[in-house]
Design a protein around this nucleic acid. Structure first.
Lengths: 187, 187, 187, 187
DNA sequence: AATGAATGAGTGTTCATTCAT
DNA sequence: GATGAATGAACACTCATTCAT
């Protein structure tokens, strides 16, 4: 049994990629990522076939982590309370992990992320969709396609996060303003 | 001689850049842009100092065009009617000019666009802000910072556009759903 | 322990190298050869110090096999009959083992094969040289250096083989034409 | 009118490639060739699209030069005299230009040379074929395919050249021995 | 001003070889 | 001895930018 492929190293590369891409953008050199991960140039390619492969896997990982963060500790309560919980957790994750959030935002719009990856990521977010669905179905958007509603809510969240990052002094206040706006929209 | 000889050529480069970037992304080679513009490799650099310079100017131009489109033919009416008019024009411009819209979206998140450029673009959009302001000031978001409201509205518009582009069969319906959601939020 | 454990493995690597090099050329990766041999990446290097070492040993093996094939079942007959027998066997081996022949041809002109290896290979072919020598010594080339005559005969054989491989429909005919030409030259 | 593409530079790259490949083999780095040519790394690729393109063009050039050398100053004489003239010129070119000859030999067996290039090279050598044809048609190989005869003669020439290069002391003698053998074969 | 050849740093990726297990 | 992960020097090729014409 030779040295087995190390989960640590894989994780280190992912973390390094997150860090470096947040700083330098998607054009960051694989060599820079490897260096940041404390790994050789070539080792990166024993864990990921191509740079695009790394990017796709990183996208899934970050998106998954974001979803898990948003859904953690969900209370057994009414629709509004659950939405508020999810909203709060989501924004907390994003503002606490600015690098991850920034890298995720860049990956989201990149050509390198395949349709199939986007598909898998969509399933990961099914849980978030369900919470939202419960609130939508009985509100003013009951006749609007669920996917459009999801898109709109996502946009509100992203916008709120962006604003908070630019003006971190009043985080709680902005978080609340965003949620109120969201609830007026769908609730 | 403050301005180079031919405004035509400058415009051709801008148009070519829009086209090529929409197709190939921001990584598109300047040579490819020059070729599409029917201009030599080197000439591009007599009109724009660097690639980043071209990108920044293109961003301002597209953003400005978008703003002008949204504000054109504004009726002398109440806040809601004006908002609806603006919303409609905005979405029309985006769906009618998919290349411009796509390129603009890419530039928006690019590292190459400087803070100063973002600042100038913000001023360009002041007109749109005023319309919005009139509606906000008397509605439920009267105590929320105008900038945050603007960010949220912008996000809703972008999300609606994205959705329409993905499902062009029901454009008018989605346009309306988006506006209704917006108005519930701020009106 | 002078020799590594398994002769089988060594042979498998040799066979795999023959196969892969015939297909992909001398630039083939050692990893590809190891995989084809059903052996690990690293094991290849316990049987051969370097890729060049593998190539040199393979060259000797193939050349030796070719020589043995050419000299097998040599009849106790006059010079011409022996030459014809050798010629026939030689060409049969080459056309029956196209991969070996192709790989051998590539090794023959490679920079990786050392002068010393070429020397050893020459000795291996001494048997073939003797047969040839008997015919040369009494013919029109009696005053030409034996080595030059050997070189010329070898060239005729290689050329005939090449031609047969390109036009396999008339193998026997071409084999005969080649031999007749050879015999006119030296007989 | 900008700097026009320079024929000198193209020729310099060709010459450098000949030199370097003769020394280091076909694996030689394009950077090494560029350096030897006194040209930048990237310039090589403004004259040749790819390394394979350079190799193919080099092959045609060397093969063409060889053919021209062999056919130059052809006397208006009988078949044998013309063959002898061609043989002599051919061998002179090869022994006078060992780098070109060595590089040509490597290109001849390379996978990088396309079938189409081989086809064009064949046409280039049509002149040589005609001379040979005149002698074959009335000799003992009159019933052997012309292509096979051409292959065999070529092989004899190559072998003779190889031998001469290894033992340059008796060039004229070996040249003569080779021709005599050739003529016995076909004349 | 216009052209496009020239430049050379930089890119993703490969691969012979080593070495921890 | 066997394995396959680790290494890092290469490599072919690209591209923003410069500059001779």
């Amino acid at each position: 049994m030779p040295r087995p492929k190390s989960d640590d190293k894989r994780a280190a590369i992912m973390a390094a990629a997150t860090q470096i891409i947040a700083t330098q953008g998607l054009g960051a050199a694989t060599a820079a990522i490897a260096k940041e991960a404390g790994v050789s140039n070539g080792s990166l390619f024993t864990y990921f076939d191509t740079k695009a492969d790394l990017l796709n896997q990183l996208y899934l990982e970050l998106k998954g982590e974001m979803g898990a963060a948003a859904l953690g500790g969900l209370p057994d309560a009414d629709g509004r309370a659950q939405m508020l919980h999810m909203w709060s957790r989501w924004l907390d994750w994003a503002t606490t992990n600015p690098h991850k959030r920034r890298t995720l935002a860049q990956l989201q719009v990149s050509d390198e992320i395949t349709a199939s990856t986007h598909g898998v990521a969509g399933q990961t977010l099914a849980g978030m969709g369900e919470i939202l669905e419960r609130s939508r179905a009985s509100g003013p958007m009951r006749d609007v396609p669920a996917a459009l509603v999801f898109t709109l809510c996502n946009a509100l969240a992203e916008a709120t996060i962006d604003y908070i990052i630019r003006d971190p002094g009043h985080t709680e206040q902005h978080k609340r303003s965003g949620f109120d706006a969201l609830w007026r929209m769908i609730g």
